[in-house]
């Protein structure tokens, strides 16, 4: 299939970006990133600068890939990362617009690659249970209601790709932060530090320059792991509870 790619090119964070058009010949069984490989091969053969994009596992779990395809993070296919999107979702003659994730807290590094270290900062503010190696009790000493364990797992499937932020018209990281918090708060192990965790992670989330959630729900729609905005509602509840009834 013959495609026109309209790709955002930006040399580095300091320079201005612009769109450039490319023609590429793809096959329907290719993954989207393999199609970009083909383009890059062409560019390298012509001694031009290949398009920089982040990718690693190419099986939808590492969360490295980060591009907006025709206005949608990871493309419009439900529950699919860009690396798992295949070209059979497109047809010959299509023009595909590819841009980087856009949000102030995700500065562009080059072309389609952005810096998502703000997510690490949020995690470091409390996305853990403080237990040193060797301090644990027997695994079965802490029974967990199956429904709670399942819900914790649903929240924990977040791959930290940042599609939620990219999809959000406010550049908010509430889905990411709330999923991280809800994962731990659904488990008995997570209760001890619950209040501190909630307050600290929200504080750092704000500090990193993310926007405020206005319950648009685009994050949930574009999340490749289909994480629910129920997490956001839960975080709002936890936060209020922590402020009103927490120790500090």
């Amino acid at each position: 299939m013959n495609l026109t790619l309209k790709i955002w090119r930006q040399k580095n964070n300091g320079s201005n970006g612009h769109f450039e058009n490319y023609q590429v010949e793809a096959e329907e069984h290719m993954s989207f990133l393999e199609m970009l490989d083909v383009l890059n091969q062409q560019l390298i053969e012509k001694k031009q600068d290949p398009v920089a994009f982040e990718h690693d596992c190419r099986e939808g779990i590492c969360g490295a890939c980060s591009m907006v395809i025709n206005g949608r993070p990871h493309g419009s296919q439900t529950g699919t990362t860009a690396c798992q999107l295949h070209m059979r979702a497109f047809k010959t003659g299509d023009t595909i617009t590819i841009e980087p994730f856009r949000a102030n807290a995700f500065p562009v590094i080059k072309d389609l690659a952005v810096d998502r270290s703000s997510f690490d900062a949020i995690m470091q503010a409390g996305g853990y249970i403080s237990v040193n190696t060797g301090q644990a009790v027997d695994g079965n000493a802490i029974p967990v209601e199956k429904a709670d364990a399942d819900e914790a797992f649903d929240s924990a499937t977040c791959i930290g790709c940042g599609a939620c932020v990219a999809a959000c018209p406010n550049g908010s990281a509430m889905l990411f932060t709330s999923a991280k918090i809800n994962h731990l708060s659904k488990l008995p192990q997570g209760q001890v530090e619950h209040s501190r965790r909630v307050k600290n992670m929200v504080r750092v989330m704000d500090k990193e320059g993310f926007g405020k959630c206005s319950n648009v729900g685009a994050c949930e729609v574009d999340c490749p792991k289909e994480i629910s905005t129920d997490n956001i509602a839960a975080l709002n509840r936890y936060y209020l509870g922590s402020v009103l009834f927490g120790q500090d």
């Binding site: 853990y128 249970i129 237990v131 190696t133 060797g134 301090q135 644990a136 009790v137 027997d138 695994g139 079965n140 802490i142 029974p143 967990v144 209601e145 199956k146 364990a149 399942d150 914790a152 797992f153 924990a156 994962h183 731990l184 488990l187 192990q189 997570g190």
Partner: peptide
Amino acid sequence: EIIDQAVAQGVPFAREYGGLL
């Protein structure tokens, strides 16, 4: 020990209805 450690960290392993691993 790995399992104990992971559970303590909040790794959401699959569980039976009785709440055990």
